[in-house]
Design a protein around this nucleic acid. Structure first.
Lengths: 386, 386
DNA sequence: TTGAAAGCGCTAACAT
DNA sequence: ATGTTAGCGCTTTCAA
């Protein structure tokens, strides 16, 4: 289809204009789809574009439009404290690996500060690669952006330093907006972004009500689905491993779960807080087992913790699902890979990530648009564990 | 520290020049660290920069330097065939999910082509989020780039179409170079990139010898480590689950393993080919168990397959490591999370990804630099499975 | 509806 | 060692 000659220097508007016998301005109008161009000329220009193999120079365009034509995808995480001020413990459980090497390289040197040794970043980075959830968000965004000819600039904001750099990078106009997925509650990034007047869309309801668009799942409905399934199976002694309770997801999944149980006359399901990691799920399960040896149903607030729970249950001689039914949340790859395959609440992460893209792009196209939120419905995926 | 007034419009070189009482050119020189600037003036300019809160406008800079000051991180995958020409089977086992929905949306429309339904992209995307390996490469790159004030543009090239778009995007100068990690052998991307005269660095030796820089692990040494460990434990009947044999990693890990065994008088260790997915590891293990019921040692070419093997072994009543010792490869998070925790060959993925960044950046700084490769040494991480 | 011209902010000759 | 100047390729008034 493209059999043209493509010489060394990339063709410019000028070249196309000459080939079409019109002015640069007209070519620009055609290329940008601006009205008021004679159809005949329009066609001629299109031909010239094809013949020359013209593609707009983004730098030149950005220079005048003041748009970067790029967006940021930031995986955010650490709370206000980190690298430099690791001291104060956060409200709830802390990530174990955090805190080595802090305070290193404060000089602001631009050299050799690697994530592997960067204070506070270790556990953040580890969690991000360990939980398939983040990978799903990223692939969802990338795949949805691709047909639009765009690729996201990927950023991690795992430390206060990294976060500030990200914010100023975006403020400087290097991207037109940001998609952010937080690995932590109390993430100051959303506020920083909106305060700076930048367009952003979140994955998940922000902890504090900040005026920002977001895409979320009807978390409580998901938890309800899990509770009902456990109830239907005839579980009598149901417990739950929650997510971090300072985060909205953690709270919502717990309350949705408890509400359903309470409505069926089973208030006060025992709960132990986890941190969404497999290990925290194991610890929580062990504790629940010790305190409630007669338990026969477990709802873990994500798949990773459910997998950890299964491991511990088996080590304690309990069969899943015969002795204890287990339900996870997310429906990540680990759920299907688990033994037994996990019954879980599915969150259409990739789709939701795509919705984030749409929301942001619409907002950028029409900044006057109001802040919006889109809520997806979860579904129960029944496999073997419950 | 910054207590200046920051008005609406971003300060330009002009503003700084005025503030410092010099010309734009001088400011530019200072900002870009060009020699031949009087130290006193240099200092004055620096002050002015700080006072005004100046940051270079990248679009303007790119326009004249013809550098994008950005790099691509592409996770590549599918071979020449896909979306449009799914017909011919590849040399060895095919990814199972591949091939639904092919031929859809050929019209070249720029709308609504999502990865989830895009032919050939399904299994690719799934594999990418399922294998923590890719996440590690990505985090390694992002973390290493951050101190340099750069963020990679993330791209997936899972179909021929996507690959072409990626190549032309880069050719158009939207990024200065590319970091590529292939999920498939026979990936045409490296060749396409070099043929187009673009700078690129690969993760892993390319299938065919193409003149391109890469970072790799001494795969055979890693396999040797695994073989020796199994031998030391006194395993008598050792088998292996290989990676895809059309890929260099698959080959190298197998030959390194067999060579070591042969040198100890144990040629012909039974091998079954896997595809690096947990499921393929399960299938392979089941087959090996059927054909060699007396096996007592397994080397899986990656952790995911090792986990699958452990599942199957347990289901067949074999205890790990008492009855059968299992060793994986990579040392991803799943290795430590496995029950029992997996003894495995560690690949310092994040570090290696950092090395890719260095290689590419050096190359961009001095294009005359020769093509290089950096090889890392693997280490054996002993846990419980062997 | 189309063209002419100005200028976005920066770097890189070239002059001084 | 510093300043002057000429664009880089594009969009966007403003005229015609």
């Amino acid at each position: 289809m493209t059999e043209d000659v493509r010489s060394a220097a990339a063709p410019t508007l000028e070249d196309v204009a000459r080939a079409a016998g019109v002015s640069r301005a007209t070519v620009s109008r055609v290329v940008n789809g601006v009205r008021n161009v004679d159809p005949a000329i329009q066609e001629a220009v299109r031909q010239a574009v094809a013949a020359t193999g013209y593609t707009p120079n983004r730098a030149a365009r950005s220079l005048v439009t003041r748009r970067a034509d790029a967006i940021a995808l930031v995986v955010s995480g650490a709370a206000a404290d980190d690298a430099m001020e690791e001291a104060g413990p956060s409200p709830s459980g802390r990530e174990n690996g955090a805190g080595e090497g802090q305070g290193r390289d404060d000089g602001g040197g631009v050299d050799d500060e690697d994530g592997e040794t960067d204070g506070g970043s270790v556990s953040f980075t580890a969690r991000v690669s360990a939980d398939p959830f983040f990978g799903r968000v990223v692939t969802g965004v990338v795949n949805h952006l691709r047909p639009r000819g765009m690729y996201p600039m990927l950023m991690f904001a795992g430390t206060a330093r990294a976060r500030d750099e990200v914010v100023s990078y975006i403020r400087q106009g290097n991207t037109d907006g940001a998609l952010v997925v937080s690995a932590h509650a109390e993430d100051p990034l959303p506020s920083l972004l909106t305060e700076a007047g930048l367009s952003a869309v979140l994955y998940g309801r922000p902890t504090r009500p900040v005026r920002i668009s977001y895409v979320d799942l009807a978390q409580r409905d998901g938890a309800r689905l899990a509770a009902e399934r456990l109830l239907e199976r005839g579980c009598r002694r149901i417990v739950t491993i929650t997510g971090p309770l300072e985060a909205p997801v953690g709270q919502d999944r717990l309350t949705g779960f408890r509400e359903t149980l309470a409505r069926r006359g089973r208030p006060d399901a025992p709960a132990v807080e986890g941190r969404f990691s497999q290990e925290s799920g194991e610890v929580a399960m062990a504790r629940l087992l010790a305190e409630h040896p007669d338990l026969d149903g477990v709802f873990a607030a994500n798949d990773l913790m459910a997998v950890g729970a299964c491991h511990v249950l088996r080590e304690h001689g309990r069969r899943v699902p015969e002795d204890v039914a287990v339900i996870g949340f997310d429906d990540n790859g680990v759920a299907a890979a688990c033994r037994p395959p996990l019954t879980t609440v599915r969150q259409p992460v990739e789709e939701m990530a795509g919705a984030m893209v749409d929301l942001l792009l619409e907002r950028l196209a029409r900044p006057s648009l109001p802040v919006t939120s889109v809520i997806y419905e979860p579904t129960l995926v029944v496999r073997d564990s419950a």
